[in-house]
Amino acid sequence: TEKQERAIEYIRRLGYSEEEARRILKKANGNPDLAKEIARRIG
């Protein structure tokens, strides 16, 4: 989804690889607090 793409872009800007960014997002899917934090940061 567009939100996922924005989140991946944001995480990659922090210096993670695409693969790492996707792994972090997968974790965020099972972790509402982390997901909220990422969403808050990407606006």
Rank of each mutant, 00 (worst) to 15 (best):
E5Y: 09
I11L: 11
E5V: 09
E2G: 10
A7S: 05
R23V: 10
K3F: 09
G30D: 07
P32L: 09
K3M: 15
E9S: 07
N29G: 14
I38V: 06
G15C: 05
A28H: 02
T1S: 13
R41C: 14
I38E: 04
R6A: 15
I42E: 14
E20V: 09
E5A: 12
L34G: 03
I42G: 15
N29I: 05
I38S: 03
K27H: 13
L34H: 06
K26D: 10
R41L: 11
A39M: 03
E37S: 11
N29V: 05
N31I: 06
R13W: 13
R41D: 08
K3P: 13
A21L: 03
A28K: 01
R40T: 09
Y16D: 00
R41H: 11
E20L: 07
E20G: 06
A39E: 02
I24K: 00
Y10N: 04
A28F: 04
K27C: 15
E20H: 07
D33W: 10
E37K: 14
R22H: 09
R13P: 00
Y16F: 15
Q4V: 14
K36G: 05
R13V: 06
L25V: 04
I24F: 10
G15E: 01
L14N: 01
K27P: 01
P32N: 04
I42Q: 14
A7Y: 05
G15D: 01
E20Q: 12
Q4K: 08
R41P: 04
N29E: 08
R6Y: 08
I42S: 13
E18S: 07
G15F: 01
A28D: 00
I11K: 00
N29A: 09
G43E: 12
D33F: 08
Y16A: 02
A39H: 02
K3S: 14
P32A: 13
Y16H: 05
E37G: 06
R40D: 11
R22L: 09
A21H: 00
I24D: 00
R41Q: 13
R6Q: 14
E37Q: 13
N31A: 05
S17G: 05
I8C: 05
I8H: 03
R41V: 09
R22N: 06
L14V: 02
Y16I: 06
I38A: 04
A28Y: 04
I8Q: 02
N31T: 03
R40Q: 12
R22M: 08
A28W: 03
R13Y: 09
R23I: 11
E37T: 10
G30R: 04
E9F: 06
Y16N: 02
E37H: 12
D33Q: 11
A35H: 02
I11C: 04
I11P: 00
K36P: 02
R23N: 12
R40H: 15
A35W: 04
T1E: 11
A39P: 01
I38K: 03
I42D: 12
R41F: 07
K27N: 10
D33S: 10
R12D: 00
I8S: 02
L14M: 12
